[in-house]
Structure formats: structure tokens, C-alpha cells
Design a protein around this nucleic acid. Sequence first.
DNA 1: TAGTGGTCTAGACCACTTG
DNA 2: AAGTGGTCTAGACCACTAC
Lengths: 243, 243
Amino acid sequence: MSLIQTKSIAEQVEELLRGRIRDGTYVPGSRIPSESELSEEIGVSRATIRTVLAKLAVIGLILRKQGDGTYVNARVQKVSAHLGNIWDFACLIESNGFAPSIQAISRELRQATGKEALGLAIEPGDELLHLVRLFYADEKPVILANNVIPVSLICEPVDTVDGRLHIREILQNYCHQEIAFVITDIRSTLIEAGESVLLQKQPGDIILGLDVSFYSKNNVPLVLGSNYFDDTVLRLSLVQAWN
Amino acid sequence: MSLIQTKSIAEQVEELLRGRIRDGTYVPGSRIPSESELSEEIGVSRATIRTVLAKLAVIGLILRKQGDGTYVNARVQKVSAHLGNIWDFACLIESNGFAPSIQAISRELRQATGKEALGLAIEPGDELLHLVRLFYADEKPVILANNVIPVSLICEPVDTVDGRLHIREILQNYCHQEIAFVITDIRSTLIEAGESVLLQKQPGDIILGLDVSFYSKNNVPLVLGSNYFDDTVLRLSLVQAWN
DNA sequence: TAGTGGTCTAGACCACTTG
DNA sequence: AAGTGGTCTAGACCACTAC
């Protein structure tokens, strides 16, 4: 097992191009070099260039015009938290222009409710680790995150779990599991008394509810998330490319 | 200009494989033939097979395991309205298991407000076409859609615009414009008296607000959408693949 | 060890836009 | 007409998983 994971050529090219877009080497709205030119300059095949450009086009960072060229999308740079980031709250806070931080509120062992058991494909009463975390945007609390993980998945001592880590990291470090896909339900909801205090809101204020399920490649449910998202401070905005 | 648009090989392969997944030829949860086998059977290169499988993997329809094989994702088939469909309301209603229909409520010419002018990159007071449409799920109203289009973009007589068409089709038919990308803001909001009647809700009920902006490849704002989404009837659920 | 998906290449041809 | 992105091919090698 090698600790040093060399990045693929495509990943390196992606970072290079993202960097040039970020630092203005490629001016917003302007045309970037053609695929052939990039291929020659960077020294990789045109196919590799194309896989990278396709990825950047999907998230709207660039606009491609057949017979013309590829353009930097000025509009998306400022706005976005795009598709891949919907459930990555720290990333989402950052792209809203705030400095993110995470506070671990509590870590509790308890039994699964019927609904949780259904979502996690376990039996009601099976033991769960329930994590409560609070996400801050520039010192202001904006997202209250509840996550439950079946204890049966956890390989390490439960009390070593660091609540400030990303869910992905928690699953990697303590469960040796990788996330394959995620299903997110978005609801409009009223905040309850218990949660309102932590988010500095009034009970009965309206708020976004994000119910998230994480699954492994074997289609095993890994974690359920029940999150309260203060959309008066943070924008939940998605960018999508057409085709 | 040819009316018959032959589909690309990749598109045909995608339809073939989607069909096999839909009709159970490929059993949910089971492994499908390898890339080489598909390549040989269908008679296209492995690269083409791979582009199709990559697309299906992004929307979670299949799960790919290196060194093992490709599996049909049983879970996603039932759930989803995935990324590409967030703003395609008819499609979203359908994937929730209802029959969609659209009622054109009104079609009005009026002047742009300051906010609208900003979003559409025009001047306040410039003329807009304001469409109000109501989406039904099995005869029950679930989404109220307000769309505004700068009249300057419309090439055909305004009173010929068919309010029951998809926004994409309206832009194609009456403005000769193609949508390149979309930015959607999701908010939690209270429904106002005017809108509540159409959606058969009480004023003050909570509801999801979806603010959508459509842009062309030239980064010109084409349409703004302000939509009220009854999430007590319809689930807004997103599927995303990790990587 | 055999077979799978993951990465990458070099090159061909097409469809399209711009000058 | 020249140059761009879009599509597709055939083949090589690697990393990983199962048996």
C-alpha cells in the first residue's frame, strides 16, 4: 500500500486549467486555446484534454461552441456551489463567500427508530452513533447537521470519532467505507424549539431541510443525514449544464 | 437543413442499455456484461461503450467496480429525479409517480422591475413577456411557475406563444435560442395570498421557492423563473454519484 | 492468475462556425 | 477555406478484484 498516490494526468491537467481560470490567465468571458493547442502545449493527447474540458463544461465553468471555441464562463465563477457539492457543507459555505468552521455538538449512542432502520436497512432498536454538528459561516451558525451511523459499521472505538471531520472522512477513517452515491431530499420546514437555539432562530421560523442518504458501491446505506439549513444567510444554488 | 436528425452511436447505445435496465433484461442489483462483451455484441468500440456507461454512472443508474464489474443500481430506479431534471418540472412530476399536465394561467406584457432587469441584463422598464403556468400531478396543482422573457428576444408574434410548452421549447420556437446552462436557487418560503389559491394552499403555508435563470452559450440571460413548489405532495430529490 | 474497469494514446473523419 | 469542437476507432498498459 503506497501512501503517495500519484494523481492521474487528467487530474493534473484539470488542476492546471482550473488554476488558469481562477487566477485570470484565462480571462473570464474570453476564448481559451483550442484542444489541439492545449494538447501540444501540455504534452498529452487530445482525448485527455477533452475529458478534462468535458468535466469543466458539466459544472458550467466553461462554455463550448462547436466550430468556434471554448470560453470561460464569467457568470458561474462567482455564484456557485454546484452539483457535486450539495451535501459538502463546508464547501458550500466557502463558495458563498464565508469562512467555514465546524463545531461538534454531541456524540451519542442510541437505538434506531423504525424510520431510521428502514433507511439504513437495519433492524429497529439496532445501535446507532448519532452525531450533531453545527456549521458556521464567519462565526454565524448556518447549518445544523444530524448524522446517524449504524454502530455495526464502525471498526474503531466509538469515542475516538472526531465530529469535526467531513462525513466522507469519518466513513473512511472509522468504517473503512467509501461513498459511491448520495440521495438528497430537499424540503421546506419549520424549525423546532430544540434546533432553533443553536441556529439563533425563533421556533417556527422557516428553514430548508436536507435529508441525505449515503450509500456504498455495494448499495449498503452508510449514513443518514437530517440537516437544517438557514437559507436566509446561505444561498443553496445549483449550476447545471444543458447537455 | 435536414429534418431527420440521425442519433449518434453513443445515444443509440445509451437508449439500448437504458431499455435493458428498464425492462429488467439487466436484473436490478446484478452485474451486466463487461465493456469488452458489450463492445463486441453491439459492434462499437470500447471507448464508445465507456462514454455511455460513464454517463449512466454519473446519474447513479449503474455502479462500477474496478476489477469486478458494472452493476445495476436497484435503489436509484425508484427514487429519482436527478440532476438534469431539477428544472424540468413535468419530468420531475413524472418521476414522482404522477401524471403531469400543464395549464397556462396567463400571458401578460409588462415592464421589467429593477431586479428583473438586473437578472436579465436589460434596462428597468424594458418590456417583458410574463407567463404564469400551473403544473398538475394527477389533477392536483403542485407547482406554480412564473417566467419572464425579454420581448426583445422574441422573434414571433407574442400572442402565438403556447404557455403549455416546456421553457426550452418556447425559447427554441419563438426566440431561436438554445439553453446552455441553468442556475437554480432553492429557498424556503411562505406562500402569499395570490399564489395560495391556485395551489389550493392557505396563505402562510410553507413551500419551496425555486428561482431559476436560463442562459445561452453566449452567456446571455434568456429567462427568469420564479416557482412555487408544493413539497408536501412532490419530493425534490437529487441523486449524485461520488466521482 | 484471469478478467474487470481505469487511463491514455494517435489518428481519422464529421459538423459546424467564422472570416 | 481554415480551424474549431464532436464523434469514433483500435490498441496499449495499468490497478484492482475475485477465484
